[in-house]
Amino acid sequence: MTTRRAFLASLLAASATPAVGWAAVGDPAYLAAAKGPDGGYFLAGLRADGSEAFRVPLPARGHAGAAHPSRAEAVGFARRPGTYALVVDCRDGALLHQLTPPADRVFNGHGTFSPDGKLLYTVEQRVDDSEGFIGLWDTEANYARIGEFASHGVGPHDIRVMPDHETLVIANGGIQTDVHDRSKLNIDVMRPNLVYTALDGSLLESHDLPDFHQNSIRHLALRDDGLVGFAMQWEGEQGMAPPLLALHRMGEELVICQAPLGDELAMDGYAGSVSFSGDGREIAITSPRGGRVHRFSEGGAFLGSVSRADVCGLARHPEGYMASDGLGGLLVVGPKGATPLRRADASWDNHMVPIGV
């Protein structure tokens, strides 16, 4: 017969058992959403050599993911405007939780965990007017929603936790959208902004783009020393060649990164992803519309381009960057150009999300 002491000891042992970490699912370096040849969607874990560590199904097209910092647990976000975010066990694809935004909100494709993994931050907008919000979810209470705060802008899309672990940086795209058909309602007066908040949502800094107010701030890259890079998508007059990358450090002015005119035109006004390189000494953006990867120095000087059809996903890699395309290709991009790694029987979606950052 089990004694009370033995029972308590077994409980203590169970509570001391470490959560299953990423090594248990093949040590993936990235998360990436994709569409398979059968038309189904999935979220994959990819190693630095391009091989798949796992794949788990998604009910509809995914956009980006968020990787728990210690557990082999990931959140797959629907393409914006989305009404689902799925928390999955990456060992077997089991659905752990399905997150749903409040009735007057939609998810906007991105989110991130706190460094200790106790909180999930989700990027949301209000249906009626696209006003932005950040949702707070307690991962240790079955991902219960425990609060929210304003993103201090319209149409937020991306969010990161700064290296000080006390500050959030938010990309507000500035676009008011109709959630039913994704039509854009305020292009003439749109106002994108880069925002820094404290963890309680109180505003610390907000930076507009007065010379390029129709350049929607979409995606963020973050270096360990707090340097932020952000990619933009032009919503103004066609045929223009606006800059699509900027750098910023808190307390300083924005640094706009301009490519030569011909290269800028080739991007077709659209940057899909942004990432610092593995060594942090440069930063790059992709354009699936233009089939280009543009590399810049850490100071914003243009370093060169690589051509690749439908390239979009981008993440840091020991040899520079890992990139993915809509034709199933994975490649490493560095100072000497691009090196193909693998081609999957799938179509990679917009983003590659590093695990462990």
Rank of each mutant, 00 (worst) to 15 (best):
G229W: 00
V228H: 02
G201Q: 07
D211W: 10
Y196M: 14
D211A: 15
F230D: 00
R223Q: 10
D200L: 10
L227F: 08
F212A: 01
S206F: 08
L220V: 08
Q214E: 09
L203T: 14
S216V: 07
V195S: 15
A231T: 03
D224V: 06
G229E: 06
S216R: 03
S202L: 12
D224M: 08
P210V: 10
D208M: 03
D208L: 11
D225R: 05
H213F: 08
F212L: 15
I217A: 02
L199E: 12
A231S: 14
L222M: 14
D211P: 04
S216Q: 08
D211K: 11
L203A: 10
G201V: 13
V195I: 09
G229L: 03
D200H: 10
L220K: 03
S202K: 11
V228A: 03
L209V: 08
M232D: 04
G201A: 09
R218K: 14
L199G: 12
H219T: 01
A231E: 02
Q233Y: 14
H219W: 01
H207S: 13
G229C: 09
L220A: 04
S202H: 11
R223Y: 10
S206V: 12
P210Q: 04
F230C: 05
Q233L: 07
D225C: 07
G226M: 06
L220C: 04
L220D: 03
R218N: 05
H213Q: 04
M232G: 02
M232R: 03
R218A: 05
L203C: 11
M232W: 03
D225H: 07
V228T: 13
H219F: 03
S202G: 10
L227R: 06
R218D: 04
F230I: 07
G229D: 06
L199R: 14
L199M: 15
L203D: 12
H213M: 03
R223T: 05
R223P: 00
I217M: 03
Q233E: 15
R218C: 09
D225S: 06
N215F: 04
Q214I: 05
D208E: 15
T197P: 11
L199S: 07
G226H: 07
T197H: 12
